[in-house]
């Protein structure tokens, strides 16, 4: 025989799944929400998204090529995904230089300083976002009004911010209700907020796509949203004057975006469903606590980052059920 046969250990067949496919499918799932943000905020949304993606991929390439001295792996799609998620987490009016700094922190500090894809303990996009939120609080919380809005104002407040201000001022929830957008507006995204988080319905559409393609399982998003619903629901029942009904919290802010796209980041979430339950429970509880009792109106990014930190611990203590094992 002229040709040498290949020898490799079993198994000799492999699923058609790959890291690249997973990344590109998540990106695809985010496209509807992206389109909506372009519709809402116009070309600014395109500018921020493109800039974030290009900056993330560019920094990844440069750092891998010149600092880590390895073959750049920007085609795996993870840098592009980080870029999109970062863009989704900032207001559309953010200055370009801030988003570039955010991309550098997200990719450089959040991901590559730990060794690249798979080794980062925290979600890179959230590391970038939280860094920006703490460093540039003014720019990060001035929300532009939609291009279709019938108003002369340039900026507006997010529903969560309105709620927080109102509660701080001691107003009962019932008085605040008329200032807040209706559930329908919340669902399809006719509200102020970060670029990608406004339309709950389109984010859920992407979730359905990812479930269909088996990119993620339902566990983390459902557990997170379920926890928020239950905990906020409990508070609402205790004191409906001070705490708003739970559906409002599910549909506003980054709850959907965080629960579906950020908390499910494979690298930083636990492996087993048991572990995922604990992780999601933590995210839900911390989110509700920050939203109701904290200084910030929104808390899911902090909640996810905190639980990211617990993930290795959860992985150590919550092992899968062994076949034939005792537990």
């Amino acid at each position: 025989m002229s040709k040498l046969l290949t020898i490799s250990p079993s198994p000799h067949v492999h699923t058609s799944e790959s890291v690249n496919k997973i990344m590109y499918r998540v990106i695809l799932a985010l496209v509807p929400a992206l389109v909506w943000s372009v519709f809402m905020f116009g070309l600014d949304a395109v500018r921020v998204t493109l800039l974030a993606v290009v900056a993330c991929m560019g920094f990844e390439y440069l750092i891998q090529r010149f600092m880590m001295k390895e073959e750049p792996k920007i085609t795996d799609g993870s840098a592009a995904l980080t870029g999109i998620l970062l863009a989704f987490n900032v207001p559309a009016s953010i200055p370009s230089w801030i988003i570039i700094i955010g991309a550098l922190v997200a990719v450089g500090v959040g991901k590559l300083s730990f060794g690249g894809l798979g080794n980062n303990p925290f979600n890179p996009a959230l590391v970038g976002r939280v860094f920006l939120l703490i460093s540039f609080p003014v720019q990060m919380t001035s929300w532009p009004v939609g291009i279709h809005a019938q108003t002369d104002a340039v900026t507006t407040a997010t529903p969560l911010a309105i709620l927080k201000e109102g509660v701080k001022a001691g107003q009962p929830i019932a008085d605040l209700m008329h200032k807040l957008p209706s559930s329908i507006d919340l669902l399809y995204g006719n509200i102020a907020g970060s670029m990608g988080e406004i339309s709950a319905a389109l984010l859920i559409l992407g979730f359905a796509y990812m479930l269909w393609k088996q990119v993620i399982t339902w566990h983390i998003p459902v557990f997170v949203l379920g926890t928020i619903f239950m905990f906020q629901g409990g508070l609402f029942l205790l004191n409906p004057y001070k705490f708003i009904e739970p559906v409002f919290h599910l549909l506003t802010g980054g709850a959907m975006l965080g629960a579906i796209y950020m908390a499910t980041d494979m690298v930083t979430s636990p492996m087993t469903h048991k572990g995922q339950f604990v992780y999601a429970l933590g995210i839900g509880v911390i989110t509700v606590l920050i939203r109701n009792f904290g200084a910030y109106p929104e808390g899911i990014s902090f909640a996810i980052l905190i639980m990211n930190g617990f993930t290795p611990l959860i992985n150590v203590y919550l092992k899968p059920k062994r076949f034939g094992g005792k537990n």
Partner: peptide, 22 residues
């Protein structure tokens, strides 16, 4: 001369546990 091509994990220990070598 090689008589086959190994295509597993690049580790002598893995290759040796699989077969006699390339």
């Amino acid at each position: 001369p090689k008589t086959n091509q190994f295509d597993g994990a690049s580790s002598c220990a893995v290759a040796a546990s699989l077969y006699s070598g390339e």
